[in-house]
Design a protein around this nucleic acid. Structure first.
Length: 423
RNA sequence: GGAGAGAUGGCAGAGUGGUCGAAUGCGGUGGUCUUGAAAACCAUUGUACAGCAAUGUACCGGGGGUUCGAAUCCCUCUCUCUCCGCCA
């Protein structure tokens, strides 16, 4: 969430920038500022009242000790009114704070100045495209046909065991999946990321910290009996490692990578674009997370983009990089680049990674800070990206690497797979 | 699932109604000494909010209560640990 003090000081700028996200912030920010004023005023008054009653209590204590009961009792009588007043004020204060907080979490992150205006994904800006789109002729098959033919992914079996969107990978399909996980992790470790294996269920505080709660409650599987959520991405447990942490400046940047399964309810997205591996309820993803100094975070974002591009290049998949427009960028992000690979048989670009700078939007929720050279405590910037999400990469590999006899394995994956072809 | 214990500052750990934001030790930072280092010694060392500041207020797991006054007493919730049972 944004910082109230910042909104107060840059009201017009905030409103103008949020308009890029098609968010009309005028009313909510007016309400927020007046609530903040009320909060500060109430708090000042409350503090005063408490200061008075603290003073009286101390005096009463001293009087009792010196045996002056009469005067002590007289002072006691004076406290009643103060007590009453402070009770009222503290109630008013906590109500005001709650209202303020409710407003604050409804305001999305401010987009970076480079974010283009736009209504939907149609308006995203293509930054670059590279890699050769293979010419497979008219016989190219979509991945869902190929995986059934080769018996490497069984969607119907997943339906039997769990439901739609929970595929079963088998044989060389399973091995290829495992190879991708190891390959991605190795690439990330090589680039200086520490590998972590976090829990796959998180509590409410963690869900709030990265911004999934309260806004996207319906997108996560919720284990109500224990009030835990299945993670929709490793971003949640990994970023929350640093919740309530004050880092030293020299600790920055912190770089973590994690492989986890991801669980998404995808409520309301049935129908289009859900065939095969395109959209699943459970999928595997390797995530990269960085905690960085505010002045360095955009350089870091670029380096993360380069890193992901390097992996797709090695896999020899045609891909393009998009900068998301105001209408498509997420609630919590300032600047997001999406990576899409070309899925030849589907004749479609599939999103395989999303790399974002959240600036201090998450860290303000997380209370993730660092001590700067001036000894002051300031919010870090947080960034993350997929490196990479498996199913669509797999779909693209299967389709782009098909030939008359089967599916070839990208060269970099052969050592991980132990075979070079699925026939 | 059953029984018990506990939650205090970066860590360890004292404090059972009054000037306690909290002893002490360790750690951190700065300094003295030293060619340098170690040791020793000295000093310093939580966070948030309000305020230009002085300063004030809050925080001893969360919430509520008793009291003029709560880390300390009462209620309640959450979490952690130990033992037993079950179990990968």
């Amino acid at each position: 969430m944004l910082q109230v003090a910042y909104i107060r000081a840059h009201k017009n700028e905030v409103v103008a920038k949020l308009a890029v996200k098609n968010f009309d912030a005028r009313d909510i920010i007016d309400a927020l500022i007046s609530l903040d004023e009320k909060r500060r005023q109430t708090q000042a008054e409350h503090d005063d009242t408490l200061a008075n009653s603290n003073k009286l209590s101390k005096e009463i204590g001293i009087l009792y000790k010196s045996g002056n009961t009469e005067e002590a009792n007289a002072k006691k009588a004076q406290t009643a009114e103060l007590k009453d007043r402070s009770k009222q004020l503290s109630q008013l204060l906590s109500e005001t704070q709650k209202m303020l907080h409710d407003k604050l979490v409804q305001i999305p992150n401010i987009p970076h100045e480079s974010v283009p205006k736009g209504k939907s994904e149609e308006d995203n800006k293509v930054i670059s495209q590279e890699g050769e789109i293979p010419n497979l002729g008219d016989h190219a098959k979509p991945h869902w046909e190929l995986v059934a033919e080769k018996n490497i992914i069984d969607f119907e079996l997943g339906v039997k065991i769990t439901g739609a969107g929970f595929p079963v990978y088998r044989g060389k399909g399973a091995k290829l999946q495992r190879a991708l996980i190891n390959y991605f992790l190795d690439k990330n470790i090589e680039a200086g990321y520490e590998e972590v294996m976090p829990p796959h269920l998180v509590n409410e505080a963690s869900g709030f910290g990265t911004g999934q709660l309260p806004d996207k409650e319906g997108q996560m599987y919720h284990v109500t009996e224990d009030n835990l959520y299945l993670i929709p991405t490793a971003e949640v447990p990994v970023t929350n490692i640093f919740r309530d942490v004050i880092l030293k400046k020299e600790d920055l940047p912190v770089k973590c990578t994690a492989y986890t399964p991801c669980f998404r309810r995808e409520a309301g997205s049935y129908g289009k674009d859900v065939r095969g591996l395109n959209r699943l309820h459970q999928f595997d993803k390797i995530e990269i997370v960085q905690i960085q100094h505010p002045e360095e975070s955009y350089k870091t974002l670029d380096s993360m983009v380069d890193h992901v591009a390097g992996i797709l290049r090695e896999l020899k998949l045609p891909f393009r990089i998009l900068q998301l427009c105001g209408g498509d960028i997420s609630f919590t992000s300032s600047l997001t680049y999406d990576f899409e690979v070309y899925s030849t048989a589907q004749d479609k670009w599939l999103e395989v990674s999303s790399v974002s700078n959240f600036e201090s939007y998450q860290t303000n929720r997380l209370k993730l800070r660092y001590r700067d050279d001036d000894k002051k405590i300031k919010l870090c910037h947080s960034l993350n990206g997929s490196s990479l999400a498996l199913p669509r990469v797999l779909a693209a590999i299967i389709e782009n690497y098909q030939d008359a006899n089967g599916i070839r394995i990208p060269e970099v994956l052969i050592p991980y797979c132990g075979f070079d072809k699925i026939e």
